[in-house]
Design a binder for these strands. Sequence first.
DNA 1: ATGTTGTATCTAATCGTTTAGATAACTATA
DNA 2: TATAGTTATCTAAACGATTAGATACAACAT
Lengths: 347, 347
Amino acid sequence: MKETHVTIKDIAKKAEVSVATVSYVINNTRYVSPEKIERVNQAIKDLNYVPNAVARGLRFRQSKIIGLTITDITNPFYPELAKACETEALINGYTLILINTNDDRERTAIATSYLREGRIDGLIITTALEHDRSIIEKMIEENYPIVLVHRTLDNIQVDTVLSDNAYGSSRATKHLIDLGHRRICFMGGVDGSTVGNERVMVFQQTMREHGLPVMEEWNLRGEVGYKKSYEDTKRLMNLSNDVRPTAIINISDIGALGVIDAALEMGMRIPEDLAVIGFDDVFITSTKMVGLTTVHIPSYELGRVGTKILIDRINKKELNHYQNVTLPVKLMVRGTCGYRNQKGNKM
Amino acid sequence: MKETHVTIKDIAKKAEVSVATVSYVINNTRYVSPEKIERVNQAIKDLNYVPNAVARGLRFRQSKIIGLTITDITNPFYPELAKACETEALINGYTLILINTNDDRERTAIATSYLREGRIDGLIITTALEHDRSIIEKMIEENYPIVLVHRTLDNIQVDTVLSDNAYGSSRATKHLIDLGHRRICFMGGVDGSTVGNERVMVFQQTMREHGLPVMEEWNLRGEVGYKKSYEDTKRLMNLSNDVRPTAIINISDIGALGVIDAALEMGMRIPEDLAVIGFDDVFITSTKMVGLTTVHIPSYELGRVGTKILIDRINKKELNHYQNVTLPVKLMVRGTCGYRNQKGNKM
DNA sequence: ATGTTGTATCTAATCGTTTAGATAACTATA
DNA sequence: TATAGTTATCTAAACGATTAGATACAACAT
């Protein structure tokens, strides 16, 4: 559409100086006489000139853009994280490219190819799954700036910013156990995610430590959205009263909402008939109308710190040790589990 | 970090041909003998070569990136729209840059400067406010590819993709009137937004058409998030029983949630003591646990169509008439307004 | 042998910047 | 006046791709 950009040459011509001089006044990088500075600035104003970022990018071999892969921006866990990345990037003179992967390997490949093409200077990956390992490892090996946020890969040497999944999972499980639950189900999310793996593992461990059974057939993994959780719950709640779970922990708040909706639809009451805990602490579930008990994941902080580390990595050529940050999480007790009152009576 | 990119020269050297030949085989743009094609492809594979997108961008004077401004990705209305843009962009070989403006003029200026810098080839603006007018008009005048989505500006010549706010607002208002409400409040969102302007105007008009009073002091504009709506509602609900609104329409679902929470906290029942309608039909409010009655805004379609038009605009040099699309909306009746049953009795 | 035609590949300019090094124009010194 | 030393500005080469036009070579006709 736009066909005639005004370039540094036009400014040089109009101000009757060389392009070098123009560049010097723009970047303030060598002494230029006051009257020429004036002429150049005038020409810039007159012609409404802005230096071309692509040409600059070619010269400096950098785009000043960073990429962010997320599973799906439509899952309310991610917007906050994305916003943090964008804000932190902007502060440092970078802009952010958004890549929804839907946990698809092909999409991860596209994202990393942006790095090779020089389209982005660094990549924040929140979507690392075991099936992406080879792609990611190769990029790290070739020294491209990458940081893994939220999800990581076992035994990988790279910067990571994670949340304390082990604590979160054990805390949630214990909360339920304290409330008297013995048949607890954990809906663990996509396969190959360290987030799911760790939370499920610690859940099972905690159950065993308390002498409680881990039901093999309740070990539900795979895509966990609202729909899947809703369906799984319907199935589970059809089990007879003395066998079915009295509590469900879901790996995400949105999944937990599916659980609740299914139970509600079957005429069950929350928390009396079924206790529910989520993960994430997405804004919406914190409202009084929903009031979901959940494990707060510091999504903003995850994004902010991840972006900061990435940009450091891009700029400081050599940083010989990787940074591995783990952020604290917190159980937010609200209405979907019931609670014991002061005197120890369950309500 | 990465310091030695392999370039087309390296391939040329390794394959013992000129750079032109390499380019010809990569882009399949002139005949090259089979054995040289083979040699070039081998070299590309051996050295793991990918053409540099920035250099290409400079040559072609385009970045293959488009920008998207949104108020705040944290407001669940936008992720779906953003996802649509990203998907449609990817299909057409573009990637998407995300810009949260927080309805701040300065941020809009940054976004448009990306266009001038050649950092992006086109811009989708969902954040147009009256105070951005001069910035936006100037860019349009200079023929940069821009499309206004969701919000527009009065009397502006440019491609737009909007939703049918007039119908949505009148439909929602009539729904409430049919249910017997006479004191209805409309919380109208940020000043200077055509979305708010139009919805409020049609609301007032509809009220008048039905001989109902429009309370001047309930004409609440300004930032409308959860918090503001919550506070306004608290204030309103403190009015005496026979004066306060019996129904509130909020310009967004998130705002509506604030309304509901405030009322709930004051011991009121929804919908018996207060009916609530939102706008957007964000996924979360459609769940059984929330069940908000709301006007569905086709956010995905808004993003998809907007992106398509923008890309057409970028590619087809001349399109002498602007496209102005209005997408249909729909009232989703759920639980926050109550309803009349078959026999006309209010429930 | 000479000229013509056609084919495969190469050279070099271009896109819009930045910047090292050359150059020209002063000023100061002997 | 010649020389050295400063200072302000310019020329031209990068950055990594694409591509028009030049060129070299072979095949063929005369």
